[in-house]
Write a protein that binds this DNA or RNA. Sequence first.
DNA 1: GGTACCGATGCAAGCGCTTGCAGGGCTTTT
DNA 2: AAAAGCCCTGCAAGCGCTTGCATCGGTACC
Lengths: 334, 334
Amino acid sequence: MTNPPAPIPKLEDVAQRAGVSTATVSRFYNNPAIVAPATAARIRAAIEATGYVPNLLAGGLASNRSRLVAVLVPEIAQSIFNDTIEAMTAELSLDGHVVMLGLTGTGNARMPELIDAALSRRADAMILTGIITDADTRERLRQRTMTVIETWGMPEDPIDITVGFSHLAVGSDVARFLHGRGYTRPMLAVAEGARARQRRDGFLEEWRNTGHKPPVVIDVPLPTRFGHSRLVWRQLAQLDPLPDVIVCGSDVLAQGVMIEAQAAGIRVPDQLAVVGFGNMAIAGDMRPSITTVDVDGARIGREAVAVLRRRASGERIVQKVIDVGFRLIARESA
Amino acid sequence: MTNPPAPIPKLEDVAQRAGVSTATVSRFYNNPAIVAPATAARIRAAIEATGYVPNLLAGGLASNRSRLVAVLVPEIAQSIFNDTIEAMTAELSLDGHVVMLGLTGTGNARMPELIDAALSRRADAMILTGIITDADTRERLRQRTMTVIETWGMPEDPIDITVGFSHLAVGSDVARFLHGRGYTRPMLAVAEGARARQRRDGFLEEWRNTGHKPPVVIDVPLPTRFGHSRLVWRQLAQLDPLPDVIVCGSDVLAQGVMIEAQAAGIRVPDQLAVVGFGNMAIAGDMRPSITTVDVDGARIGREAVAVLRRRASGERIVQKVIDVGFRLIARESA
DNA sequence: GGTACCGATGCAAGCGCTTGCAGGGCTTTT
DNA sequence: AAAAGCCCTGCAAGCGCTTGCATCGGTACC
């Protein structure tokens, strides 16, 4: 019943059938403008008839372009980066590129091997959301001609291109906002990542100017999970006096704390205000809706691809740091 | 300041430096057992010295193995499949494979082009969570020798290998469970996907045996978003009498409905019970915790890779349908 | 001492494309 | 009418690996 595994058609089969050389068929794919319309039509017919699908391994080897873009993120299970990935994937596929997904894990432990994986496949570019802390690795990447885009942060020492925003500024904006609303006893739930710490530092720095006591800060383990909110809640509930606002490292955490608070009969925001980060879908739809910091993750993805495109077309990139900014969104919870 | 872009070292550079032929270095990578320890040591040193990274495009072309596995999912933003993807990615990287991520979009609209993308890169295997409805495409894939694994469902007409569970059975189990608990007026919020409909059908079929009136069924648009729960709630609140339990197509939806209910002063589960699907992290941590159906998404990923491995080692796969089952988890919400 | 065998390595022919260069036929310019 | 230019296509030399086959030195066995 199974057909004999028919040999996979190759460029030459198409060429023969269309009565042209393989070079012409190759051009039909890679530079259609320069093949005559009549020829193109014959080639199209031949492709159709043979069911030919190009072999991009061979093509990539010959042309030195793999049409692969390595995207390295810490995780996707509960991730704030997923919008970025989706936007990037969509945008890249317009150019015939494909995403090679690498999960670097909490603490980016698997980063080195994933970089090797990307290099060995001769990825056309590498897009990072996690941070490469290792100086050697950073240097190694600089040696290569590969485009490297760091996203979501603003590293002090960029490898190549950066698309992100200042987490320090987020922190200070939130502090200013809460001070303006009259809150006096904030508490901070900070995730263990480098960027979350920058937001914390920005907050602390700014809060100092208010003259109020410095906030209580507690650490939350990575990866961010809904369940951690219970830990936060426990520590919060022990404080006396209770804080009047809790600033969470993520919307997920904020939502969790709100649910715990409500279950304990504490009214949000009257008795306890809550601030999140990320403006995920839940933030707007919670009851009460969550005050948070909006980051346009999709835009980060699009900007990153835009840079790739410009470099691919030979343009020299001058603006190596692209700041997409952020917006504090005041809702009901604070 | 920028070094002249040093040529990327190749196998031959390593070979020369180690005083062996390229064949031996190649074997060092692909079949280390057959190269003499002393030689291996010299090769290792040469690799270290040159900073060589294999070119898998070239290697793949020659060996006809790309070490690329295409993973096609509808979305990742809010997806129940993310655990599966994570497990698969982790498992695959143990074998030196890498995931090519394709997002097929709601309704799997982009499936055809992604299949082409996978074929042109000569992916070693293709793992699907979305469903290919187009018969031509199914047939086209059967023609190829590529391993195709369909996951999360149990298609009537599998392409090759299947790892999943029966959604029909989920539906009837939930119906039986609710009947057993004495509920009499269920309502169903069903997402537009084929699998969600199977669960609905399983429920309806089973519910018929209870003698109670058939449930009200409403459709929820894809992709699943937290905000949809508000729509569900509005429709629910108009019913008279109110249903005594709402069966949601996902935990996200269930959580949203619970939050709306609580905001409206309806007590869960006393006045309205809620059932979800997927056993995501939130389900266990909500207040009240959510009764749901647990699916071991990570296991699906691992089983899929296990099949790949066995086939790669030349084994002929007899058991083409792997049922990972599911568990109804009774918690506080129903 | 001869034969058989085995482990380790080298030789060289591809794998299926891309692309610089060249050339043939037309049209345009002088 | 010749020269110049342009469009389209073909030739063929790679791209950097893998792997079947051959080779070679040694050990085991009779």
